[in-house]
Design a binder for these strands. Structure first.
Length: 329
DNA sequence: CGCCAGGACTACT
DNA sequence: AGTAGTCATGGC
């Protein structure tokens, strides 16, 4: 089946900037691939593969353009539900902007981030692996790593627009080797073929490969990710921290992107610097304290506030100012 | 060559 | 409870 449909601007509240949302480096999933005026990616709808192509002109209130294609029959409404969720179109940005406007320190972020929405994961497990891989990594390298993992272990689906891969299951990644061969016993020629090996190291995830394997095993055997969905935020936070490779920042990313806990406030190095400057007079404050400030001060908007502060700091050049000076002239 | 990337973990006081 | 060292890998 192949269908075209639109999402009208009156079906969601506030502005929407598709390109900014996809390109803002949110680590829930790799950036969708650009194809002409469309962005495209394979998503699973009711366990059926579906290629989604989506386009939108953010400067007008024109409708969102969607083309969906699948070897199976899928109801339009189900596809639409998934898209609404992934691009944060169920979130009321008008209310968010009311909230941000009420704090002079947050108000300036609105103009820089107009239409920016949370980019939610396709599945909780994907957000777990994506977030683990993003830790102490560059966005660029992280994107490449996740794409390699999908290529090597995901199910392959071919469309006229290209070949796409689903995200592998916990069971699959639980059995993925860190090294397919012992490098010490390989001939120099064979070592050159390493990029094509079916192991995690060849995906350029480095030392995180152990975390990915162990976490997948735990998700397969003892940790029920769906159970966490119904917990209150703090219990969910404690539970997700049990996974190896998941610390406070990665954990909050999973809760935010994977489960949709709006209260989650992921504190990375940049948020730490920004919040320090805005709310602690530039003083060095431990991350847990940053996190509690975010949760208490921003409440259900903490996740969006974090997103807007981060993006604002990047776009406004504040990031550069906040970097510790290497040498002063 | 050195430094850093949206940190987490371990081994120390 | 707080703090330094270490961890792959690629880009600059």
């Amino acid at each position: 089946m192949k269908i075209k449909f639109k999402i009208e601007s009156n079906e969601y509240k506030g502005p929407f900037n598709l390109e900014m949302t996809i390109g803002s480096g949110q680590t829930s999933q790799p950036a969708w691939e650009k194809n002409g005026k469309y962005f495209q990616e394979l998503i699973m709808v009711k366990n059926k593969p579906c290629l989604v192509k989506i386009a939108h002109n953010s400067n007008t209130d024109s409708p969102i353009d969607i083309i969906a294609e699948s070897p199976h029959e899928i109801e339009k409404e189900h596809i639409k539900d998934n898209i609404m969720e992934i691009f944060g179109l169920n979130d009321d940005l008008l209310k968010l902007y009311d909230f941000l406007s009420s704090d002079p320190k947050l108000e300036p972020t609105i103009d820089f981030c107009k239409g920016l929405r949370l980019f939610k994961a396709h599945s909780v497990f994907e957000s777990v692996i994506c977030s683990i891989t993003s830790a102490h990594n560059s966005i660029r390298q992280w994107n490449k790593a996740i794409r390699l993992i999908k290529e090597k272990w995901g199910d392959e689906y071919k469309f006229s627009d290209g070949t796409f891969y689903s995200f592998p299951s916990p069971e699959t990644l639980a059995e993925a080797p860190e090294y397919e061969f012992d490098e010490a016993e390989c001939s120099p020629d064979f070592l050159k073929t390493r990029t094509s090996w079916k192991d995690l190291r060849s995906c350029r995830v480095g030392y995180r490969s152990k975390y990915i394997i162990k976490t997948s095993q735990m998700v397969q055997n003892e940790v029920d990710l769906e159970k966490i969905r119904n917990m209150d935020y703090e219990s969910a936070f404690e539970s997700i921290l049990k996974l190896p490779g998941v610390g406070p920042k990665v954990g909050d990313c999973i809760l935010l992107y994977g489960y949709g806990f709006g209260k989650a406030f992921p504190v990375d190095i940049w948020i730490s610097r920004i919040v320090s400057r805005l709310y602690f007079e530039g003083k060095n404050v431990p991350n847990p304290k940053m996190r509690s400030l975010g949760i208490e001060k921003f409440g259900d908007y903490a996740g969006y506030t974090q997103l807007y502060l981060f993006h604002y700091a990047r776009k406004s050049g504040l990031m550069e100012k906040l970097k510790p000076e290497k040498s002063q002239k």
